[in-house]
């Protein structure tokens, strides 16, 4: 029972991070039907920028919390610029190209960004600076840390903010209208280019935040970390129904919990044959099952016209 609760908590934390990243995939897909495979790399760059900026601020003698906020702001700004640049340079010229073209471009962008990060930050694992106080709690036999609580609270607040933006503001309404029918939205006076850019910029800002969380949680970072994280977040988006915001949130949390429970019990299930380091397979088993039995995901509309 303790393992069960413990893994639910761990899964919730990891799942909040997946959800934030999944939102970036789903917003872009919802508006323009593009799977931006470079999004995982945007998150990775968010983590690495934080390491550099917050690390230097710490060295300069700034208190940890302020250095953390400085690192977070820098990371959000860099990622927003990166998301904007990706759309402007790589995807916009391909707006009317056959579907495969932007997809291949996205994979190309992902490789370019990884190599760029390798050139800037090197091939080695980097240590994420300790920006948050390390406090552990134990309640009813379940352990959790201040960092875990912060991750869940900040994710939940951010996602609430995003829902308000999308469902309660004019920009959000224009985004939803554009997702449904860009030509008609344009007739209403909506500048489609701006709405698409906004989707990239907002998704990248969420990705930066997720990048800072991953760094604080695992205390380690690497130029290839965006690949697996991106793939899992993409799985979460598909699980929830790609293009659907609430779906990405629920899909992220669910995937985190499935993975954590899987990791917690995989040893028992396989008689010790597979250890918890096999937890990555759960995400892909989920992806395959969803694609086979309900490709539109939990909250998805019919995918026919788009996918």
């Amino acid at each position: 029972m303790d393992i069960f609760l413990q893994q639910i908590i761990n899964g919730l934390v990891q799942g909040s991070i997946y959800a934030l990243v999944a939102l970036g995939y789903t917003m872009v897909y919802g508006i323009m039907g593009l799977i931006n495979f470079a999004h995982g790399e945007v998150v990775m760059i968010g983590t690495l920028v934080t390491i550099t900026v917050a690390g230097s601020l710490l060295k300069a003698g700034m208190p940890a919390l302020l250095a953390g906020l400085g690192g977070l702001s820098a990371s959000v700004l860099v990622c927003m610029a990166l998301g904007w640049g990706l759309e402007r340079i790589a995807y916009r010229p391909l707006r009317n190209a056959p579907r495969l073209t932007p997809l291949i471009t996205a994979i190309g962008m992902s490789i370019i960004l990884q190599n760029l990060a390798m050139m800037i930050w090197g091939r080695n694992y980097l240590t994420f600076p300790a920006l948050l106080p390390k406090i552990d709690f134990e309640v009813a036999g379940v352990n959790f840390s201040a960092i875990q609580i912060i991750i869940v609270l900040v994710s939940a607040t951010t996602m609430g903010g995003l829902l308000l933006l999308v469902y309660r503001t004019k920009l959000g309404m224009a985004m939803r209208a554009t997702a449904q029918n860009p030509a008609i939205a344009s007739l209403m006076g909506v500048n489609i280019n701006r709405v698409i850019a906004a989707a990239f910029i907002i998704g990248s800002a969420l990705g930066a935040l997720a990048g800072v969380m991953v760094g604080s949680y695992y205390e380690i970072a690497h130029y290839q970390m965006g690949f697996m994280l991106g793939l899992k977040a993409f799985t979460a988006a598909v699980l929830g129904g790609i293009g659907n915001l609430a779906g990405a949130m629920l899909g992220g949390v669910l995937l985190g919990i499935i993975e954590a429970l899987g990791a917690g019990y995989i040893g028992d299930l396989t008689g010790g044959f597979l250890g918890s380091h096999y937890q990555d397979i759960f995400a892909f088993v989920v992806l395959i099952i969803v694609l086979m039995f309900k490709p539109s995901g939990l909250f998805g509309e019919k995918t026919g016209e788009r996918a």
């Binding site: 004019k170 309404m173 939803r176 449904q180 008609i184 939205a185 909506v190």
Partner: peptide, 19 residues
């Protein structure tokens, strides 16, 4: 017609007043 199917009637009208 080209209405936005997944926006409410009111939201569709607000889209008309987007400018």
């Amino acid at each position: 017609r080209g209405v936005f199917p997944r926006l409410s009637v009111l939201e569709n009208l607000h889209m008309g007043a987007f400018i």
